[in-house]
Design a protein around this nucleic acid. Structure first.
Length: 595
RNA sequence: GCACCGUUGGUCCAGUGGUAGGACAUUAGCUUCCCAAGCUAAUAGCCCGGGUUCAAUUCCCGGACGGUGCACCA
């Protein structure tokens, strides 16, 4: 199984491993070793290049801990709760809200308090689905997936570690829109850790309690803004829509982004646009596109905020794993924060031409309403305003009636001070909609390792190597003296390594063991180029040369030391391939066969 | 959270009621002008707690961690 080999390689070579081993380990937490941290950082940088810089977006960095109020508004305090009930007989745990929904006509049992759910379980005689024992009398326990903490000492306020980086962007929207000078559309990105106290972390990097997300929140005008779909219209994608998943003989849909949007397979052009951008990005960073698809969420699968959602999935070790989600979150988040928070989570959109509209208004005489209705006066005034907007004609009568707290209240029309005014509207306050491409960085790293892992034969010996894209590889180049019994070679190799480092390359130096062993070490961590200093390169009339060996083919060319970093730069950036080295330089016949 | 299985050098494994052995890797030296070669030496391990026992890495109980299944899962 490739999976176990990758896990073994990851531990042995320093990509990732379970954290806190000295204390028995902690489930759900992984540490990235030197290779893994470098690879992960390169993934993040590549993501930034594409989703922040190339899209003209802004990146922010918000705190990991946020106060309770944020998550009351976002819905995570309720929506992230699982109601569990444990069977007293067989010990099996079940989702209490799901059981209630199955046995009653209640559709959203999750919104009910636990005590009520306990009563419903008793009254409807709901039994354990596993063993049939009635569950009456069992406690319904809330399990919230958020890590709770206290902010400050003493009478501190409750806080939570963010379950997604997105909220850090949403809560700062009132300020972020200022930085965007109030113009839609604009996008804000964030790369950082998110935390979920998973019931059962599994599968290495796949489900962790602390993980890294790279998220883009694209804020758009709900009607007016169109994505630059033409940029990715021809990008070919493999889609797995919800209806195909539910069909008996469901199949993939091979299409282009443009067609998928035209035909409504992907409902939102914005989601379609980012599927296209993501497809190209994944391909560029080295995901095997034969093991990649976009799968639409089934209706019951969607998060509490998502109107439509597609996942990017990659096949790792025979399983499809979710590596990114593309949600159309509509105005859910901003509306919620607008409702719960103090600031304006809207953008003022100026009309092309100011509009003159007639607006019915009231200016209730509070000196009359106050004595008459006491504490309810304000509510009466508000009801009158609502009525004016809804049904101006009502004010033509001598008296108007409105409902306040379920009671009908009648006031003189005079008191309402009804009038119709002509007002000039220069624009309107719009709550933007949000399109959210959200990437799992660790899962992307895992995918890259799984898809880059190769086994072949070099010179009749089996070798394993990581065929990572040079731009993503943890190390740019390794430098060796061919042999160590000649001081000149060692010294030169050290100085070549230093020179390359000074010019910004990430370089490994190794003079231990045979040359073949050193090549294999680098192959195994995916270093794309090995630079070897040999006697042939230092002797002779011309300038000093070294050999440069390409990882996947083990092919070698002889390259002048002078300007080596510049020569390697386009290859490391992924802008050129080793082919051009083979053309430009003398090849070295090492007599090595790869297959 | 439940069930089953597992946990022995850095990695992968063998083994035992009297504190352990291999392979690979690593380090040092010799050798070596291009692909895990060879020779010599060195470093390094029984997941944690409790129990039974003269003695526990081994048996029992509990826990942690991992794998698989169930459940759950933006």
């Amino acid at each position: 199984m490739a999976g176990t080999e990758i896990v073994e390689l990851a531990k042995r070579r320093g990509f990732f491993f379970g954290s806190n081993g000295a204390y028995g380990g902690t489930a759900g937490f992984y540490t990235f070793g030197p290779q893994g941290a470098a690879l992960k950082r390169n993934v993040e940088d590549a993501w930034r290049d594409r989703f922040t810089v190339a899209e003209g977006n802004q990146e922010i960095e918000a705190p990991n801990i946020m106060p309770e109020a944020v998550f009351e508004a976002s819905g995570h305090l309720d929506g992230f709760d699982d109601m569990l009930v444990e069977c007293g007989e067989c010990g099996e745990s079940h989702r209490a809200d799901h059981l209630v929904e199955g046995a009653t006509s209640i559709e959203d049992a999750e919104a009910l308090p636990g005590s009520e759910v306990e009563l419903l379980i008793r009254d409807h005689g709901i039994a354990c689905p596993s063993c049939g024992t009635p569950l009456a009398g069992q406690d319904v326990e809330d399990f919230n997936l958020m890590f709770a903490t206290d902010i400050g000492p003493g009478d501190s306020q409750p806080g939570y570690l963010r379950p997604e980086t997105a909220q850090g962007i949403f809560v700062e929207f009132p300020r972020l829109k200022e930085y965007a000078r109030g113009r839609l559309p604009f996008g804000v990105t964030q790369v950082g850790a998110a935390y979920r106290n998973e019931i059962s972390p599994r599968g290495g990097l796949l489900r962790l309690r602390e993980f890294t997300q790279a998220e883009l929140e694209q804020f758009i005008h709900p009607e007016d803004d169109e994505p630059p779909l033409w940029k990715v219209a021809d990008v070919e994608v493999l889609l797995y829509p919800a209806d195909e998943q539910e069909a008996e003989d469901g199949d993939y849909v091979e299409t282009t982004v443009g067609e998928a949007v035209d035909e409504g397979v992907v409902g939102s052009p914005w989601v379609g646009y980012y599927l296209g951008v993501a497809q190209e990005w994944y391909e560029r960073v080295g995901v095997d596109m034969d093991r990649f698809r976009f799968r639409q969420h089934l209706p019951g699968e969607r998060a509490h905020y998502a109107a439509d959602c597609w996942d990017a999935e990659s096949e790792v070790d025979g399983d499809w794993i979710e590596i990114a989600g593309f949600s159309y979150r509509a105005d859910y988040d901003l509306s919620k924060h607008g409702e719960y928070g103090d600031d304006a989570f809207t953008v003022f959109q100026r009309y092309d031409e100011p509009k003159t509209v007639e607006r019915a208004t009231v200016d209730p005489d509070m000196a009359t309403l106050g004595p008459e209705f006491g504490g309810r006066a304000a509510a009466v005034a508000e009801a009158l305003e609502d009525l004016a907007a809804r049904d101006p004609d009502a004010f033509e009568a001598d008296a108007v009636s409105v409902e306040v707290d379920g009671e009908t209240v009648t006031v003189d029309a005079d008191v309402a001070n009804f009038s119709v005014e002509e007002v000039t509207e220069n624009g309107e306050h719009v709550t933007p909609h949000v399109v959210e491409p959200s990437f799992g960085v660790g899962r992307t790293v895992q995918t890259l390792l799984a898809h880059a892992y190769r086994v072949d034969e070099v010179d009749g010996e089996e070798r394993s190597y990581l065929s990572l894209e040079p731009a993503l590889a943890p190390t740019d180049a390794a430098v060796f003296p061919l042999v160590t019994n000649e001081e000149t070679l060692v010294e030169t190799a050290r100085s070549v390594a230093n020179d390359l480092r000074e010019q910004g390359l990430s370089v490994a130096y190794d003079d231990s063991g045979s040359i073949g062993r050193r090549y294999r070490r680098q192959d195994e961590v995916g270093t794309p180029f090995c630079v070897t200093v040999d006697r042939d390169g230092l002797e002779g009339d011309g300038p000093d040369t070294v050999t440069v060996r390409e990882r996947d083919t083990a092919a070698q060319v002889r390259v002048p030391v002078d300007g080596l970093a510049d020569a390697l730069a386009p290859l490391l950036a992924g802008e050129d391939s080793f082919e051009s080295f083979l053309d430009a330089y003398e090849t070295v016949d090492s007599g090595v066969e790869t297959q």
